[in-house]
């Protein structure tokens, strides 16, 4: 080995040492930044989910893990009439099962709040004081949902409720009732309330999408001869369509997590004879109200996740 090679060897060694120093320094920095947050996140968010996935295949003695039972919890839960009530579904009678109720929320609430949100965003878009008007619509979204549930109970009360008073004034006495406690209509009454709160959120997203549209596009369309409807159909709608995907998916997530409003109106049972129970309520009752059935609670909560997870990943992929 020549002297030159030797020197080269030394320099290389030294360089590697330097790189290692940088790497060690970076690793320490990474640990300092990441470890505290990720530890708490891991213990209190990731671990319980893993625990639930794992536990859903075991039998439970109240809160204690017992033995592996395979898909037993899954089959038992998914055939439970509290989750899906086939006979009642065929007769269109409530309760139809929590999963069905959740899907009904999705089918009615999500399109309605999306369209209303878009409509209000368009209506307010060029008005003076639009910030204030928007805040009036949105403020309900910042109110605790449990309060929303109680407000709905109050509105639908047969005597003190404004809704029934409106019916009386309109001469529709036969419709006056305690809406949140009438099994066959209560879910629609609650969905209406959900739309009332959630429209503000859709409107907010649409408003920001609308304000991002270059005004000269609309002016150009105006010059080209497009009327208000054409401008909406040809310019505004195509440009806010990506936001619609977000609005719809966020709506579905919100509805699939529905708990507080239903609990406020119907307690842990989800209404008289579970008439408008949702999956969240079933998880809560199975896990924390006797007779405790941890296995079922875990399965139902995982079902909630399975419905929503692909949608959340879709949003993430969009960006």
């Amino acid at each position: 080995m020549s002297l030159q090679d030797h020197i080269d060897g030394i320099t290389v060694d030294r360089d590697e040492g330097g790189l290692l120093d940088i790497d060690r320094e970076k690793a320490v920095a990474l640990a300092v930044f990441l470890v505290p947050g990720l530890t708490l996140f891991g213990i209190f968010s990731v671990a319980p989910i893993v625990y639930s996935v794992f536990g859903s295949f075991f039998s439970w003695d109240t809160f204690t893990l017992e033995s592996f039972v395979g898909l037993d919890n899954w089959i038992r839960s998914l055939t439970d009439q509290l989750i899906i009530h086939w006979p009642n579904m065929q007769e269109l009678r409530y309760p139809m099962g929590a999963l069905t109720h959740n899907l009904l929320w999705v089918v009615i609430h999500v399109p309605a709040s999306t369209f209303l949100g878009l409509g209000l965003a368009l209506l307010f878009a060029d008005l003076k004081g639009r910030r204030f008007l928007r805040s009036m619509i949105f403020v309900g979204f910042t109110v605790p949902p449990i309060v929303i549930g109680l407000v709905l109970m109050f509105i639908y009360d047969p005597r003190a409720g404004l809704f029934n008073e409106v019916l009386r004034v309109l001469g529709q006495e036969q419709w006056v009732r305690n809406w949140t406690q009438s099994p066959q209509v209560a879910i629609y009454a609650l969905i209406a309330g959900g739309i009332w709160v959630h429209t503000g959120f859709s409107m907010l997203l649409y408003s920001s999408a609308l304000s991002a549209i270059d005004p000269s596009l609309l002016e150009s369309a105006k010059v080209d001869g497009a009327g208000a409807w054409r401008r909406f159909r040809d310019i505004i709608w195509p440009l806010v369509r990506p936001v619609t995907a977000v609005v719809v998916i966020m709506g579905i997530i919100w509805v699939m997590r529905m708990f507080d409003i239903v609990y406020a109106a119907g307690g842990a049972a989800g209404g008289p004879n579970h008439a408008y129970s949702v999956l969240g309520i079933e998880v809560y009752r199975a896990a924390f109200r006797p007779p405790i059935d941890y296995g079922m609670a875990m399965v139902v909560a995982l079902v909630q996740l399975f419905i929503v997870a692909p949608l959340a990943l879709y949003i993430a992929r969009m960006n």
Partner: peptide, 17 residues
């Protein structure tokens, strides 16, 4: 994944923890 999960899903594990 956690952002998509419903709060109910972490209740059982955290209750025991």
């Amino acid at each position: 994944l956690v952002m998509a999960a419903p709060p109910e899903l972490i209740a059982m594990g955290n209750f025991n923890a």
